[in-house]
Design a protein around this nucleic acid. Sequence first.
DNA 1: AAACAAACCTGTGCGC
DNA 2: TGCGCACAGGTTTGTT
Length: 280
Amino acid sequence: MPELPEVETVRRGLAATVVGAPITDVEVHHPRTVRRTSAGALTDGLRGTTITAFARRGKYLLGELASGARLMVHLRMSGRLLVVDAGAPRPAHTHVVVHLGDDRARELWFVDPRTFGEVVVYDPHDEADIIPELGRLGVDPVTDGLEPGELAHLLEGRRRALKALLLDQATIAGIGNIYADEICHVAGIDPRRRADTLGARRVARLHDAIHDVLDAAIASGGSTLRDRQYMGADGRGGWFQLQHRVYDRAGLECRTCGRAVVRRTVITGRSAYFCPRCQR
DNA sequence: AAACAAACCTGTGCGC
DNA sequence: TGCGCACAGGTTTGTT
């Protein structure tokens, strides 16, 4: 579910609310959530310390602990991180509860119906062994920046469909199914077009679209779809879905040109939405 | 290099 | 109203 803008919104929410709060206790209610290590490793690694900062790389959320350890959370399809008052009634699928012992006690919940998500605490020295995917991540357009020349280089020799490349986390980190479609639309490029055939003008448009779409989505707190799955750490949804041009709009009039109907196709096994008139 | 399917799970929406 | 199927924001693994 959550892509770069959603994870960034969660990161900002946590940075503003749980950084500096002493962790007094940890409950783990689902072994799958801590499968990367163990419930004991998570509990022992968090209890008695404090989160000093939150970073984000692609869709990975990384917390620095005062102990020197590191916290990694990946929300995958249905994960949510919520900060609530202590003792608040817990929703179904609340798999991890981190007790924050402030003057005003609160809890940090990890809620995840599909249990694809993960929470892990580890020694940063062992990061390459415990979370090898992190080492394979490509450039994060927001955190690292991404210049037109660098983007052109990433596209060179890549014969895949552009959308498939945008979804490849080892090339560019953080873009998922919603934003890949929205970026292709804003750039005016057919998502099925081979990545190595864009030409300078399309590369320039793609560069601008990547930054414009991601920045606008972050400014809107991400996209909360019909199922209301995604929400920020404060429990409030985003509103970028109101600005979606093509995602999940098959059969509806294109919101950009108004003279064609949005089509749905499948690229690399994922739904892809585009306007055949605006995107070539 | 890259397409494809299957896997991991639960929930929801739709057609009948 | 109920049943069964398709599909869902992600990622890995194994097979062509």
